[in-house]
Amino acid sequence: MFELFAFGDTGWGDEILRGLAVTVQLAIVTLPLGLALGFVVASASMSKLRALRFMGVGYTTVMRGLPEILTLFVVYNGVGLLLNIVMQKLNPEAPPSDFSPFAAGVIALGMVVGAFAAEVLRGAFQSLDRGQIEAGRAVGMTEGQIFRRIKLPQVWRFALPGLGNLWINMLKDTALVSVIALDDLMRMTKVAVGVTKKPFTFYLAACLLYWAMCVFSEVVLARMERHASRGVRRAS
């Protein structure tokens, strides 16, 4: 059985590892984009302007209510069509171009993560102690200093468990991009299955790899949480 997973031409070990690398790459590229979008949407939904608030809340409500795979197809097909229309306008002779599945995956997953992250971050900002911010003003800190020294470290601590869950969900959601033909772990597994006719063995192997990544993430996140709340006194 193990020769199936050997490296080189005889086994599928290297192909699957390459797929794993694409999965990890996708997740790591998506995370900062999603977080940045989350910050923007969170500040929009906490804005004093009603229109901005409406847009922020509307975005999170819609994106959280849609199946991720629908978002992925909307981005993949929609942006693809749009690109082709623009290209046709610019240069009518150009052949129809294909939209990269990796980019579609990053954009779609980033949009989903952004919506969930916005809710996590909004919750974290709202659980800041107002008294501490007033105290910061009272001792003469500038708004920038208050943000850096008082708000940011605590928002980080409050938001970390929620963001950790998001990371794990996103890692699992990357499997969806195999449906739009990106050579990630899931799709390389499918290729191996097609040749070897051992679907259970290979899909189980893929599951175990995802499982290992999730368990590893949980361990790292638990450490990060402990580090983030190192100065907090616990009532016993």
Binding site: I168, K172, D173, T174, A175, L176, S178, V179, M186, T189, K190, V193, K197, K198, P199, F200, T201, Y203, L204, A206, C207, Y210, W211, C214, V215
Partner: peptide
């Protein structure tokens, strides 16, 4: 810890084995 898509494939295609 595993994607639901992988679980679905494990059951649907995996049962063929």
């Amino acid at each position: 810890g595993t994607p639901i898509l992988a679980q679905l494939f494990l059951i649907f295609y995996g049962s063929g084995q």
